[in-house]
Design a protein around this nucleic acid. Structure first.
Lengths: 111, 111
DNA sequence: TCCTGTTGCTACGATTTCAGTAGCAAAAGA
DNA sequence: TCTTTTGCTACTGAAATCGTAGCAACAGGA
């Protein structure tokens, strides 16, 4: 069960009363581990423990909270084999992959 | 002056030793207000105070910290008229705009 | 010059979130 | 039955964030 409020499109979120979907997305993505979890799940589903390890040993309490967030956001779901992306989650992951290419360029510029 | 460590592609970041650019990006974007600031600066440059107001009254200490992060990441710069996106920053903003469309669909699915 | 307003920040205490470890109940093998 | 694995909760201390106050520098205006 998530202890924090879940950002929901159409409802006000932290720092914005507009209810615009992008604000809910910004709120959600701005939480630590959310992006990392989505990233680690881009392939096949992972068990809780596997996911924890993939995320560099994130504490289970935080991980569990984030899994709750992501489940309420309908981006991941618990399957028989652990946690996996939903259709929406996979789509978001694909969008995010475009950012990977940007990040490569960014790395070159920065160094 | 930023008090937190800046995620840099090529160097280990929070939760990842790989040094992959995408990990640095995930680390950076996973900090509260980072995405929001980039979003609010997508148009014209804003002064510190204007940006603060645009971000729903975020505390100046945090805002200042994030501005430092973003400057070190070469995504924003201080111009004469306040803070504005760099070329890289504007590019990232464009990538992120694709996510706006995704968020619209997400909103429909969720409700 | 003095007054007033704006701007970019710093300081600081209170609150929230995160990290790190320990451990437990349920399920799965062996 | 005995042992592992799995999913998760509990707890404590550290770190990040919030919210407010306020200050120095600069820009008019009177």
């Amino acid at each position: 069960m998530a202890k924090t409020k879940i950002p929901t499109p159409g409802k006000p979120v932290r720092g914005s009363e507009s209810g615009k979907p992008v604000m809910a997305l910004i709120d959600l993505m701005g939480r630590r581990w959310i992006l990392r979890i989505l990233w680690e799940l881009r392939g096949e589903p992972l068990t809780f423990r596997a996911l924890q390890e993939a995320c560099g040993g994130v504490s289970p309490s935080v991980l569990n909270g984030r899994l709750g967030d992501l489940r309420e956001a309908a981006l991941i779901e618990a399957t028989g084999d652990g946690y996996g992306l939903t259709a929406m989650g996979r789509e978001l992951g694909k969008e995010f992959e475009a950012l990977t290419h940007w990040a490569e360029k960014w790395a070159k510029v920065l160094k």
